[in-house]
Design a binder for these strands. Sequence first.
DNA 1: AAATAAATCAACCGCCTCCTT
DNA 2: AAAGGAGGCGGTTGATTTATT
Length: 299
Amino acid sequence: MKMSARDHKREMSISEEDESPLSGNDLRRGPWTVEEDLLLVNYIAVHGEGRWNALARCAGLNRTGKSCRLRWLNYLRPDLRRGNITAQEQLLILELHSRWGNRWSKIAQHLPGRTDNEIKNYWRTRVQKHARQLNCDVNSQQFKDLMRYLWMPRLLERINNDNNNSSSPPSSDDAVITPPPQQQQQDDGLVVPVNNNQVLEMSCTTTETSSSSSLSTTDWMQQQQQALIVSTPAMVVSSSSCSDTWCQPPQMEYPPAHQFETTCWSSDEIVAAGVQDDMPDLWWGADVDLWYTQIMGLL
DNA sequence: AAATAAATCAACCGCCTCCTT
DNA sequence: AAAGGAGGCGGTTGATTTATT
């Protein structure tokens, strides 16, 4: 298992702490050591996950079941997706959060390989930060409108441009993980990837099996986007290419832009208004401030 | 180069729900 | 039906890293 410098440093500090271990039956807390990770991974590989308190004991881990579960779900399980949150994922997070609010685990179900913790952290560190910088409440209508009528369409535009401009294989930032073997149509109109374990548990409710069993996460994301965005204002996105089998776009009602005269700014409109049309690469990066400050000035 | 501030994210906590007995 | 345990969730903390001065 690859260990980062950060992990190594942490490991060293833990080893030093072990000279004065927790007394008696006290359970370990804090950062996990490599040895603990191995114990957990090996045990789950043989016996599977679940029954976490018993698992912790049987695996010889002096941890709570909760701690083991968290470590496995958020860090050790093999289908985790590493790296930056992609533009596609950002778009999904924004859209799903606008529907469900802080239902992180529910949102995470729609982002294969991402954990609720990761999405929650992303929201708090990036999205909330920018709401603060704009001096508005993250739950305010103003901020929601900004996301819906400016950021999301622009993000979408960027994604589409990227897709059009490159027929190349996915970049390293767009790593393909173990693809979702099956998808499950839910009553909310979205399609949920189902991992191997879930298939076993939920096979009785799996109604549709997509022919795209080798779908990469990238492809899955793109199809999800199409399902999500067909009614995004000012975006010309056809859903006709979607398979009717599993890509049924939800009928989303975008709220009226009570504050904006136009519901969305096209690139031409933005340029015509004198704003540089060069949305920064990372979208939430520091240099985006100028970009959307200019935009905000137009509103 | 050092000090400080800001950002990141792994991990914990407390509450809630569900399941088993 | 009630009690207790396990698992899941959202909120929060704090150590570490990264950026800035």
